[in-house]
Computed example of a mutant assay.
Amino acid sequence: MTQERTGAATFKGNPITLVGPELKAGDTAPNFVVSKNLLEDASLSDYAGKIKLISVVPSLDTGVCDAQTRRFNTEAAGLGDDVVILTISMDLPFAQARWCGAAGIDRVITLSDHKDASFGQAYGVLIKEFRLDMRSIFVIDKNDTVAYVEYLAEMAEHPNYEAAVAAVKELL
Rank of each mutant, 00 (worst) to 15 (best):
L152E: 13
E150H: 06
Y148P: 00
K52F: 00
R70D: 12
A77Y: 13
V64D: 11
G80D: 06
L126H: 11
D113G: 01
I109A: 13
I109S: 12
S59L: 03
S136A: 15
G120A: 08
T17P: 07
V33D: 11
A48C: 04
H158A: 15
L60H: 04
E157N: 14
D144C: 11
P159V: 03
A163W: 02
V108S: 07
V125K: 01
A95C: 05
F94H: 11
L38G: 15
L44F: 03
V149P: 07
K52Q: 12
A29G: 12
D46H: 00
I137Y: 00
R98V: 15
H158C: 11
Y161F: 15
A167P: 04
D133N: 07
I127M: 04
A163V: 02
I137R: 00
E129D: 05
K52P: 08
E162Y: 06
L152A: 10
L171R: 05
D141C: 07
L152T: 09
Y47M: 03
M155F: 14
N14H: 13
L18W: 01
A164D: 05
R131V: 12
A153P: 05
S89N: 01
Y148K: 02
A153Q: 05
A147N: 11
G7P: 11
L39G: 15
N37Y: 06
L39S: 15
T6P: 09
A77R: 10
G124Y: 06
L79I: 11
T62R: 03
G49L: 09
Y151P: 13
A9R: 01
D66M: 00
A95P: 09
A156Y: 13
S112Y: 02
A147I: 08
M1I: 10
R71D: 14
G49F: 04
V149Y: 00
A164G: 12
G104Q: 13
I16Q: 11
V64E: 08
Y148L: 01
D113P: 03
P30K: 04
G49N: 10
A103V: 00
L60C: 06
I109W: 00
G26P: 02
I105C: 05
D66P: 02
P159T: 05
K142I: 06
A67W: 08
M155Y: 11
N37C: 05
L132M: 14
Y47P: 08
M134S: 15
L86V: 04
A102P: 07
T62G: 08
V64T: 05
I88M: 02
V146Q: 03
G20Y: 09
W99I: 00
N143V: 08
T62D: 12
D144V: 06
V56S: 04
K12M: 13
T10I: 07
D116T: 15
C65V: 01
A97W: 06
I105H: 05
N73R: 04
V108N: 08
E75W: 09
P159S: 03
G7K: 04
T6C: 09
D91I: 00
D66E: 10
Q121C: 12
N143G: 14
E154M: 02
G120D: 12
K115A: 15
D81S: 14
T62Q: 03
G20L: 10
L44E: 12
T62K: 01
M134R: 04
D81I: 07
